[in-house]
Design a protein around this nucleic acid. Structure first.
Lengths: 154, 154
DNA sequence: TAGCGCTCGTTGACATGTAAACCAAGTTCG
DNA sequence: CGAACTTGGTTTACATGTCAACGAGCGCTA
């Protein structure tokens, strides 16, 4: 490889800033979530995905795809959430191999209670700190990066 | 709690975009790093921190503070890196309890070889996709979020 | 319809993170 | 000085993630 194109000051500030923000912001929001509702990030994401469906149920594989998780990760996590009464497994009527993940009554209550303080936390640590222009810039950047990654895959 | 202040479209786009970008971008850059040089993100961060010092050595606690890692995490990670010949431990001359982490010759070579393709990966998936204005916006956002978190602590 | 290959979900073996207990070495203060 | 407290690092117990192998069921095709 020829002399690498190192990052200049502006680029370096953006990259290091992003990395450190990611490290600290996510940790803080996770801590808030866990303190306020006893849920982990992963728990919250699973419960959110389940409520996004009217019948509050997903096939395991579909849910894993949507969340960009491995099947194995989701299967293990569902087992733990099942023990805590947040979700349950049912057999799939149309596929003997299938597992259907269902939001339980307890899971519904948990996400209902967790959501308001979680939104407040996200606002306090990120959203309410930014101008509309900055929010748009963050949305734009995410779109650009994500569509670039998607085109890599193809 | 009164009716929560849910996120509007602009805010929601920024937040969900950030979350998904973080998930996919970091995974991709980690994969590239591991494929190109056999190092994990954590390995790379430790080696980078060590090279930032002229004498290429840090007290364990100081290094943990700088990286925002727990002592226990760093201690374990150093043990694994030690087995691979990337770093070594030395006793501390001024504090009998202390451990000094030293970059080894192998670690120096590893980071030298890893850095150029890593920078390319960061450029390809993030930096080179953005305009100067977007880079500045990302830097600004990070600064705002980080200084807000710092003031929370105080 | 029998066989073969693929998919679905689970699991075993292992990598890595956290929280808390622990030991040893410093430090403070009567 | 010396007991009590603090600090630095390691370790134990456990939580959670990955990869690869597995068993069971689906479905194409000969």
């Amino acid at each position: 490889m020829a002399e690498p194109r190192w990052l200049d000051d502006r680029q370096s500030r953006a990259w290091l800033g992003y990395r450190r923000m990611r490290l600290l912001l996510d940790a803080q929001i996770s801590r808030d979530l866990h303190r306020d509702s006893g849920l982990s990030d992963a728990d919250y994401d699973v419960l959110s995905a389940l409520t996004a469906r009217q019948d509050r149920r997903w096939r395991l594989q579909e849910l894993a795809d949507r969340m960009l998780w491995s099947k194995s990760r989701l299967s293990r996590h569902i087992s733990r959430m099942e023990e805590r009464g947040l979700v349950s497994r049912e057999e799939c009527a149309t596929d003997g191999r299938g597992a259907v993940i269902v939001l339980s009554e307890g899971g519904w209550r948990a996400i209902q209670e967790a959501a308001p303080p979680h939104v407040e936390s996200v606002r306090r640590h990120l959203i309410d700190l930014l101008t509309d222009e900055q929010l748009d810039a963050l949305g734009d950047i995410s779109d650009i990066v994500l569509s670039n990654l998607a085109s890599d895959d193809a």
